[in-house]
Amino acid sequence: MNIFRILGDVSHLLAMIILLVKIWRSKSCAGISGKSQVLFAIVFTSRYLDLFTNFFSIYNTVMKFVFLMCAYITVYLIYGKFRKTFDNENDSFRLEFLLIPVTGLSFLENQSFTPLEILWTFSIYLESVAILPQLFMISKTGEAETITTHYLFFLGLYHALYLANWIWRYQTENYYDQIAVVSGVVQTIFYCDFFYLYVTKVLKGKKLSLP
């Protein structure tokens, strides 16, 4: 395991913890897209089925389990415990626009036509677009709480670090995974605009609001 991979995992975990802490402390999920969080729960569920078929390491098993738990607890807080604070009105991204193409693509473009492989591919494609409902919500309301932007920053950082991981593995092991790399590039591009706003506004102490 290389430094980019481990830092990527840490960023990913940190992002999910920031989101949970934000919701728990403020007892509110205002400004958070429940749809994005449901998509992430689907992503982890369809990807980590290998928990039952393969063992890599304690680290791998524990992290997968923690990611799944975080995703499900977040969904529960949004649609269960704090549903009264959920901004259903502005979380209006049409999920079928993501789910239908992603499902179709995972059947068409995969490494081999087996259930686990298709589900893994589906999860990779879905992850690359899962944040779109959240970004859509921010562009609709025109603002985001600072803690929400920290969440997005660490989520984006995780994607960027994973890209570095794939480059590193290609250089050192001559190993690459086309599906993971292409999806990684796509999802990192989605964050570029946000990264720019984060650096120019949030890090200078201003609230993220769109003109």
Binding site: M1, R5, D9, N60, K64, F67, E117, N165, Y175
Partner: peptide, 10 residues
């Protein structure tokens, strides 16, 4: 490499 899955990556 014919083998694809499993991955150690999360």
């Amino acid at each position: 490499h014919a083998l694809h899955l499993p991955h150690d990556e999360l």
